[in-house]
Structure formats: C-alpha cells, structure tokens
Design a protein around this nucleic acid. Sequence first.
DNA 1: TCCTAAGCGAGACGGTACGTCTTGTCTTCCA
DNA 2: TGGAAGACAAGACGTACCGTCTCGCTTAGGA
Lengths: 210, 210, 210, 210
Amino acid sequence: MEKSVDRRILRTRKAIREALIDLIVLKGYDDIKIQDITEKADIGRSTFYAHYSTKDAVFLDSFIQLKSWLKTCVDMSRVDRKRILTHRLEFIAPLCVHINEDRKLYQALVGHRGGGLARDEIRKILFEHIREDVERRCQPRNPPKVMRDALIHYLVGAIIGVLSWWLDTKNSWAPEEVDEFLQSMIAPSLEKICSDYSVSPISGCGLSDE
Amino acid sequence: MEKSVDRRILRTRKAIREALIDLIVLKGYDDIKIQDITEKADIGRSTFYAHYSTKDAVFLDSFIQLKSWLKTCVDMSRVDRKRILTHRLEFIAPLCVHINEDRKLYQALVGHRGGGLARDEIRKILFEHIREDVERRCQPRNPPKVMRDALIHYLVGAIIGVLSWWLDTKNSWAPEEVDEFLQSMIAPSLEKICSDYSVSPISGCGLSDE
Amino acid sequence: MEKSVDRRILRTRKAIREALIDLIVLKGYDDIKIQDITEKADIGRSTFYAHYSTKDAVFLDSFIQLKSWLKTCVDMSRVDRKRILTHRLEFIAPLCVHINEDRKLYQALVGHRGGGLARDEIRKILFEHIREDVERRCQPRNPPKVMRDALIHYLVGAIIGVLSWWLDTKNSWAPEEVDEFLQSMIAPSLEKICSDYSVSPISGCGLSDE
Amino acid sequence: MEKSVDRRILRTRKAIREALIDLIVLKGYDDIKIQDITEKADIGRSTFYAHYSTKDAVFLDSFIQLKSWLKTCVDMSRVDRKRILTHRLEFIAPLCVHINEDRKLYQALVGHRGGGLARDEIRKILFEHIREDVERRCQPRNPPKVMRDALIHYLVGAIIGVLSWWLDTKNSWAPEEVDEFLQSMIAPSLEKICSDYSVSPISGCGLSDE
DNA sequence: TCCTAAGCGAGACGGTACGTCTTGTCTTCCA
DNA sequence: TGGAAGACAAGACGTACCGTCTCGCTTAGGA
C-alpha cells in the first residue's frame, strides 16, 4: 500500500508542472530558468529542488499524461485487427485531433521549440506505437529486422515532419485532412514492406539484408 | 575586389571553427563552453569574441561548407532532366556517401546531439533542395501549394529519420542500401502527388485545399 | 525595533571588511583586487557582490568606525568650554595617540597610499570637527565665512601634512610631541582669525556661542 | 652633443602630452584610458607605447614645465635677501597668480582629481622650495632637523589645503587675497620656529647662510 | 485538541561561465 | 624598411544562474 502523501506535496508538484508547461508555451523550453518556474509556481527555490532535481525531470513527469493518452489510442486501434488489411495507422487520426485541441502546447513542444527533449520523447512514443503496429502486420522473420527498423524510422520522421509543419502553419488543414494525407503517404510504404516480404518473400523489393 | 584580409584573422577563425567541430564530435554541442573552444584553439577568450559573438555563430559559419557541398550535389542532379520521370531524388545517393565518409561528424550533428541547431540547418537545406525538385516535377498550380508543402515536409522528416537511425546504428547498411531504401519509399509518394494532380486532377486523393 | 539581521550576513561582511584592511596594510589600496579580498575573507566572489558593489563601498563601510571614534574625541573635548580660551584643538592629542597605536593601518591609509579615498575621508572628518570648533570660537558674523573656510582648510591641510610626515618617519616623535608642535603652530592662527575679527578681541572671544 | 631628434617624434610626444592635459581637465586623471589619449592625439595605440610606457610617464613629462616655472619664481624671490626678515614666502604670490591663470588645469590637477600623482608632484615641488627657504632662514643646527621637517610639512600641507579649497570655490578670493591670507598664517609659524630656536632671534635670523 | 514532524519561503552561500573591458606585446601590412 | 594599424593574450570585472545550505514559520495529520 502506498502511504498517503501529504497534500501540500501534491499541490506543490502540480504547481511546478503547470508552471513549466505555461512557460514552455510562453517562451520555449530552453529559455526557461529554474527561477522562472519557482516564480510562476509561487514557491521557494529550495522547494523546487526538494521535488525535482532538474527542469528535465519536471518535463518528463508532465509527459506521463501524454504517454498514457497515446497508449489508450493505440490500444483502441488494436481491438479491430481486420484493419491491418487497410495499411492504415489507426492512431494517427485521434492523435491529430488531440494535437489540434492542445495546439498551443504542441506548437511549443514540437513545432518550434521544446528543447529537443520533447521531440525525443514524442519520437520515442511514436516509435513504440508504430513498432507494435508494424510487428503485428509482419511475419516474425519477414521482413528482416533492419528493414523494419528503417521503415519505422522513416514513418516516424515523416509523421513528425508533417505534424511539425502543420502546427507551424496557420489555418492550413483540418485534423482529418492531415490524417488523410498521412495515411495516403504511409499506405504504400507499409504495403511494400509488410506485404512484399510476407506474401512472397522471393519477389522482394531487391534490398538485400546483410 | 574583396579587400585582402589579415592572415592572422583567417588563421584564428579557422582554428575556432575546427576546435568547435572537434569538440562537437567529442562531447556534443550543448556541453561545449566558450572556454573549451578557446583552449582547444589555443587562443585568448577575448580573441574569440573579437571574431564570433556566439557559439552558434561559429557553428553556422562552419556550416557554409556543407551548404555549398549539397548545392553541388543537387546542381549535378539537375543536369539530367529525364530523371524526373524516375521519381527518384538524385541527390540522396551522393549525400549518403558523403555522410558515410564524415560519419563521426554527422553522428554528432544529427544522430545524437548538435543542439538542435544542426538538425534545423540540415532540415533547411534538405527542404530547399527537395522543394526545388518537387517544383520541377509539378505543374505550376497542381498540386496546390499546401499539398506540395505537406509532401516536402513528409519527405524531409522521413529522410532525416532514416539517416539519423542509420548514423546511430553500427554496421547496418552501406550508403547505397540506404539510398535504395529511401528511393523505394519516396517514389510512390512523389508519383502520387506529382502525377495524380497533373495527369488527372479530378481523380485526386480527395483532399481539398481551402 | 531593528529587525534582527541574519548573523551569516554580519559575519560575512565583517570578514570582507577585515580582509580589506589587512590587504591595505599589506599592499596598498589600489593594488587590491576583488578576488584578493574574497580569497583573504575566504568567501565566493559572488558573495562579495551580494554585500558590496565596490571595493570603495567596503572601505567606506569600514570607515564608520573611525568616524565614530573621532566623534567621541571631539565630544569629550567639547565638555570643557573653558579650553576655548587656550586656542588649542583638544581632539588632536587623543587623535595622535590613537593613530600611533594603529600606526600600521594609518600608514597605509594616509602616509603612503589608501587610494585617495582614505585621505579624502579623513580630510572630511577633520574638516567637520575643526569647523565645529572654530564656529564655537567665533561670533556669528565675524570673521566672514570665507575667512573661516580658509582657516579651516589651512588647518586641515597642515595637520594632515604633519601627520602624514610623522607616519612616514621612523622614531621621530612621540604622539605628545606631535600634539605639542601642532598646537604651537595652530594657536596663533586660531587666535588671529577668531580674535582679530571680533570687535574687541579681548572680550569677544569665548563669550558668544550659537 | 645630443643628436637632434626627429621632429616627428617631438610632434607626436607633444600631441600626447597635450591630449593628456586636455583629458585631465575634461574627465580627471584616473578615468583616462590610454586609448582616450591616442584618440585625442590622433595616433595609433602602439605609437603611444613607442614613446611612453605609462600614462604616468606622460604626466611626469608634462610636469617638467611647471617645475621649471616654479623654479623661476623661487629664484626670483631669492634675489632680494632682505625679505627674509619679513617672514614671508615670496614665491606664493606669483604662484597664486599663475594658478589662477590656468585655473581649469589646476582644478583638475589639485582641486579635485589628478590621481594623487599630481598632488604628490606639487607637494614635492612646494616641499623643496619651502625647504630651501627655511634653510636660509635658520642657523645650521637650530632648530633641529626634525623640527624643521615638521614645519615644512606643516606649511606644505596648509598651503595645498588652502589652494585646493580656493580652486574648488567659485568667486571666492583674488590671488592677492589668497597670498595675503597665507602669508598672515605662515608668518607666525616661520617666526616661531626659525627665531625661537636661534639663540637671539633678533640677530640670528638672516645672518648665517650656507 | 494539541504537538510534533514536515513542508515550505526566504535567501545566504560557493561555484561556474559569461561577455566586456583595458592593458601591453607582437605581427602584419603599407607607404 | 620603419612605423602605423590593429590582432592578440592575459586577466579583472560585474552579472546571471546554478544547486546546496540554513533558518524560522506554518501547517498537516497522528496522538
């Protein structure tokens, strides 16, 4: 059983996390000083260090929410296995909607700044989810691991590239349009790698795996 | 005529730039202090500030080389216009070879750290070159600008994603294999957007451009 | 009630002041660097700036002691008003004794170096005390202000001149001899100005007081 | 025979000296940087160092003029030996006139700032001249050296004190008034020391001279 | 209900790095 | 080829944050 935590502690930590997020939106991750956070959260500097050792620690703590949310998305999409046949990444649609709702925040995190850390974290999350999806589509040994990895990084980079651009652009596309575009781009890649190698490995795309 | 510059200046600046590059490979961009550079370059601290106002300034100055090199690549590929029919991005092959040769440096710049700045710069360069290529493949008004932008960011992100992964992975692929993989992934996207919209705009992928 | 000050502050400031004084004796005011002080006081450089903005500020803060001491001297001499008749500056005797006791310090401050600041401060203190004394000896409008000012500056300069010489000279005179000499020099000047200008020198002096 | 010096060198040195003097009047000795001088003199910084090693060196070089001028004053006053009987320091009158003429300069040198160096130099000059004068008034062994030194420092300090005050005060006194005041103050001191100690003050003084 | 342990604000402190400034030397370039 | 221009090393300055710490005040949660 977890010991019940002093409510002051929870309150303080929440204030810190929210202050950081606010400031990221306001002026970008890298420009934020510890003192900015403590002022915004209206706490003493030593109190900050009593709870978090680093700005990054606060950030990663805040990020847990997003992680769990995305996990929900992908879990839902996992339910309907028939969709594998469609060569679509089902979690992209709700992701676009979600991002669009918290546009300000994600602009700060991905679109412009966020100190790399955010980008890396989002990349990790996307990577993991796409990896799972791809694994499910492929037979155990086909295509070879290196090819799968390449594909996943290709897709992750592409998706983040489009999403970043989308966030930086005013009034460009609705979330559904972004999803549609991404799916149309992704489908051939998914089909090529996951099908080529599983259905008829012999007629593969010619890429030799060492 | 450009006024001849004091040779001491050129020597000093070169030393600074080289020191920075060495240090990036050694310990990553963000961890480098001005003093590290001055010690490595064996100059006084005030001398540094006499030439560059910022670490970033040095970096960007160093980057001019890469820019010009890439320009050469794309200019060469521009010669043969028939290749547009192949739906290939010709500059990728020499780029892969080049990166592979300076692997250490590019690992530092892109694969792992480089303080975002490097990533942004490389992104800009790729963006520009892909934009030119795409423009040449498309008719003036088809596909609409927003679609072209999306495509370009998709490709830039995807290419950087794969290259980053490639740099971080030991003994994975030869440069030619990376090129071959990227081309096979890119081709359908290029074909879809650049052809779909020009040959039969009516049967487009359904994405409306507002 | 004065708010109780953090004792750490008092301790740090005291250490700084004492370090400065030690260093003045050791190597002269002008040659002292901030870092010399912080090393001697065994504190961090930023701590120094947290308390004093300038070397001068420390010095002037240290000087308050001397000021109060001199104030005591002159206050004591003020008690006995009959002494005005003697044309003596009563505070000189204890001053000479005091200086002789802290000879090392005053040599640094006045006799040789002390960066002008010390000299100026001591000059101010002497000026003020002599001014008070002279005012008490004179009638309100006689002698005219300009004459009184001239006299005071004459005396201040003369006293500092002799004291400086005395400090720079080994084994020259005992404090009492210096006092005696100064009094014998000063007396005619005091008498001349303060008496001459009164309507009737014999009755005038010593009667009127503001 | 001294080789005739390149006139360019003389011109450059003169420019440096004049620039320094101008700047002293303008902003005080201590605040002047080498670069200020070189800019004012319109020369390169290395040129400065080719001629003078220090700001002080320039200053002392400039000061030679004043020295020689004062020498003239005192030499003239030496002519009339009867004046020794008057207990006056004859060189003070022309000194006051001279100072009044170059008031701006002397204000900078003595009255307010001049970095101590000026004060020290002037002090030295006065000291030397007063010493000569006093020596002439006294018998070889009376008064004892320590007494004479004390007197001289007393007078030097007093004179500089009054002159400094005079320079700092607008419209206070005419040069002659300053002289008259100083003489009236000095006379008793001179008389006391130089006569008292002689066996017979009336006949003693003014007879013996080296 | 009180009391005690703790969370907390305030801010002193030692550090590290910064970017600026001035000095005196040394090198380059030009007339 | 000798002197002016100015690049350079050295190092002090004052500033900005950092992360640790000590000090009292306040407050939560168990007795």
